[in-house]
Every structure is written in structure tokens, then in C-alpha cells.
Simulated assay, not measured.
Amino acid sequence: MIVVANVAVFVVVMGINNCPAHDSTDRFGSCVAPFLHRFSFQPLRENPLFGPASSTLEKMGALKWDKVVHHHQGWRLVTCVWLHAGVVHLLANMLSLVFIGVRLEQQFGFIRIGAVYLISGLGGSVLSSLFIRNSISVGASGALFGLLGAMLSELFTNWTIYTNKAAALFTLLVIIVINLAVGILPHVDNFAHLGGFLTGFLLGFVLLMRPQFGWIERRNLPPASQVKSKHKAYQYVLCVIALLLLIVGFIVGLVMLFRGESGNDHCHWCHYLSCVPTSRWSCGN
């Protein structure tokens, strides 16, 4: 359903964009795939991802610090998750969502995984807004990283029921590190990735606890062998700690954001988490 919703939103955005009606041939060239009429793409020199104009994305709810803080458009923290810069961006995110989300949904259900996806997307938007002010941001990457974070915490909180723990942990950590490392390249919003990942990681302890081994089959066991508690004590402890950190994190982040504070003022090196300047490229806020 989430994939269908994202595709539907993209189609609507392209229809509203209506490149032929706002053709900027003199500046960027002609629309791409003109046979699509109003759904054709902006010139590649303007948007190489085969998508709409930046102005259309901004109008439809792209994340922009000035709009959120000074124009009181907090809803952009949510709407930006459903927007994509182009077909390439959309396909990359939706393929990742299918690859990651299907297994999680089969194990934990649509409601819980949907909650992780949406709340992680919000967490990514909040952290992104605290550190990036001068550009718009769209995409479901924060929500997708939230699913990765939830997979990691799910492994930890359900540690006792897993076999091949080390192999599963190593594989997951490699995937996470590679994806976060890509975020240090320019024009990639790694703060959205990090915010989504941390949010999903905490949510995994809260929403993805599994019953301990033997709980489901307890009725078929003799009284002396029955498991008395659905979850282990450490699972409850991790759940409470994660929930408290999640609530405090959102409160602090939102208060800082709507006060107009910049995360860079409190962390002078954090900008390197999103872009590391080299001789080949420079970074900007």
C-alpha cells in the first residue's frame, strides 16, 4: 500500500507540474518525453532524475526550513516523505522499500511496520530541518533508514530466539554502514537518513518485541514447563528506555526547530555527517 501511495502521489505531482504549460526552453531545453503531455518531465539540465520542477515540489510540500519555521508549515515535515524528485529517485526508494519492508511486514504486520515507516520519516525530517536550511528536501529515505534501524533493534531485543546471531548482525551492520557512508556525498541529505535510522532503531524496541520461546505453545506444555511471562525482563527494560528517549528526542527536536535554532550552533562538526568536502567537491548548508 505504501508503494502504491508513493507512486500515486508522484503521478499527481507530475500532473500538477505540467511541464509543457511552463516550458522553460530558453533556459534548460524542452520537456522530456513530451508524448506524456502534462505528465512529461522537466528538462534534464533542470532535473536529471526525470521529475518535476523544484518549484512544484516546494508547492506540494517539500521540506524547507524557512517554510516550516517562519511560515508555520509544520505539515511539511510529513508531506516531504511522500514526494520524490523524479522517477529515478522514486524507483530507488520503492525497490528498497520492497526489499526491506516485505519481510518485516510478513513478520510483524502492516500496522506496526507502517507506524515505524511514518514516524521514522518524521524523525528524519526533524533532524534534517535542524541542520539544513538552504535547500529543499524530499523523499522516503528517512523512513527507509528507519526500517533498517528497526531491523537492528529487533535483532537485539529478540536476541535469545535467533540462531546465527553473529552472521545476521554482521550482514545488517554492513548494509547500514554502506548506506550511511553514501550520505557523506554532496546533495544527499544524510541528516534525514540519520534521524530516520535513530527513530526506527528506538521504535524497534517498542513495537517489534517477539514473545519469548515457548509462550505461544504454553498451553500444550505441562504446568511445570510453561512460560509465565510473554516477554523477558530485558525486553521490557529496553522498551521503556527506548520509548522515553524517543519522546524526549522528539520534544527537544521540535522545540529547537520551531524556535528557529540551528543544530550546527550546538554541534560544530555535525555537518561532516552529511557531507565531507574533498578536492573533487565542496559542501554547503
Score class of each variant (00 low, 15 high):
76 R>Q: 02
88 V>D: 12
107 Q>V: 08
31 C>H: 04
62 A>H: 05
66 D>Q: 13
74 G>R: 07
96 S>C: 15
72 H>A: 13
87 V>F: 11
39 F>P: 00
49 L>A: 12
78 V>F: 15
72 H>I: 05
29 G>Y: 08
18 N>K: 01
25 T>M: 00
62 A>M: 03
37 H>I: 04
87 V>Y: 06
70 H>P: 02
36 L>F: 11
67 K>W: 03
82 W>D: 00
71 H>A: 12
76 R>C: 07
108 F>H: 11
102 V>M: 08
53 A>L: 01
73 Q>C: 03
64 K>Q: 08
77 L>T: 03
99 F>P: 02
19 C>A: 13
76 R>Y: 05
77 L>H: 03
95 L>T: 14
108 F>I: 03
57 L>S: 05
74 G>V: 12
68 V>K: 05
36 L>P: 00
63 L>R: 02
93 N>R: 10
79 T>I: 09
63 L>W: 04
58 E>W: 09
25 T>V: 06
56 T>M: 06
91 L>E: 09
34 P>Y: 10
67 K>Q: 07
42 Q>A: 15
95 L>G: 14
107 Q>T: 12
43 P>I: 00
88 V>L: 15
26 D>M: 11
54 S>T: 13
49 L>Y: 06
37 H>D: 08
95 L>W: 07
37 H>K: 11
111 I>Q: 10
91 L>C: 15
59 K>L: 03
